[in-house]
Design a protein around this nucleic acid. Structure first.
Lengths: 196, 196
DNA sequence: TTCATCTTGAACTAACCAGTCCATGATGCG
DNA sequence: CGCATCATGGACTGGTTAGTTCAAGATGAA
């Protein structure tokens, strides 16, 4: 059983990612990760790093995967800002609706845990949050909001996106989550309409 | 050092509450609680119960304390619904701004942790969330929103309130948090105005 | 076939976890 | 004063944690 990699790195990282996502950093042990990935304990340390390193790799993997989808959703912001923001929220709502994925959002859970994360991991989580804010701000500016409006809506949309994670972890239904974003989308429509 | 209670129950519960609030359920050990309360390990078990029991007591204590403040803030909802919701958010914003208190919100953190909490504690957390929704719904209905609008804004305001916890745990500034609620308040003003 | 390489599984350390138990000793009552 | 009560501190159990180490053995190249 050796001499050559016995496992697929992407599959293993996805398994670890799902485990961290489902249970959070504190409630995921290295043994849990070993069982989830099918990798032996020593293989995890030699191939994926220690718990902090692996968590950061999973966080990056998650942020890149869904960051790309958020980017795609916001791509039409210059022409159709309202459609873009709706699509942005749809990325989250569809992810939450997928029964194969855990509830919530790894980034939001990490943000909530920042006060108890190690400094390196916490800094990484903050950076990830900052990127999403910048993405939203750029899209809203391109969509025609002035700087002040764009700042306010960027932080608001990011916040509401996090709130979907909290609510879904608590078992809130898809219909109720749609109502949460509906208010925000209506407010944005109002802001865009009033400005145009 | 015996024969009579050597500690004040309220002080001890507050110390435990702060510890759970700061570090969350998973990252708070009974030794942490012992240090925070100044009570010996066995005194905690005999006087405050096991970790789950004590956590539920702290959650109730928190929910009652701030639930009363939210109620007070929403008291004027029938006459001034917009002022009431603003005051509702101010309860949260002022709590977050208090340097003597941990960041975030014990209820929101518990909601996020529901998938990894024991069933009894998770049920208690869900119940607490439900009460806040009912409070908001009643206030918004009294304020003049129809049932559909009241449902949507109740879940939205509750969600945004949770998002403030996430953001503050990640170090978001008070000004940015005010921007988050500003969009919601403006949306409510619009809904109230359009209806009136 | 022979040998060096590298994954693997299991054992191991030291620290921490929740929860229990009990001797100590201070207290208040009679 | 004498005694029963009860909070206290500390020791203890059994289990889990993160991280390390190492012999066994499968592989691929020569």
């Amino acid at each position: 059983m050796a001499g050559k990699k016995q496992f697929d790195m992407d599959t293993a990282l996805d398994a670890a990612l799902i485990r961290f996502w489902r249970s959070g950093y504190a409630d995921t042990s290295v043994d849990d990760l070993s069982r989830a990935t099918g990798l032996n304990r020593s293989s995890i340390y030699s191939s994926l790093g220690d718990k902090d390193t692996l968590f950061v790799r999973c966080l990056d993997r998650y942020a890149t995967r869904y960051g790309d989808r958020y980017d795609a959703a916001l791509a039409c912001a210059a022409d159709e800002p309202l459609t873009a923001v709706r699509a942005f929220f749809d990325v989250t709502l569809e992810r939450i609706a997928d029964p194969a994925l855990p509830d919530g959002c790894l980034v939001a859970q990490s943000a909530m845990a920042i006060p108890v994360l190690s400094p390196g991991v916490a800094a990484h989580a903050k950076e990830t949050l900052g990127l999403q804010r910048l993405r939203l701000r750029a899209a809203l500016t391109a969509g025609g909001l002035n700087d002040q409006q764009a700042d306010a809506f960027a932080v608001h949309v990011a916040a509401v996106n996090h709130s979907l994670a909290v609510m879904s972890r608590a078992g809130t239904s898809a219909a109720e989550l749609r109502a949460v974003v509906g208010v925000t989308v209506d407010a944005l429509a109002q802001a865009l309409g009033a400005h145009a």
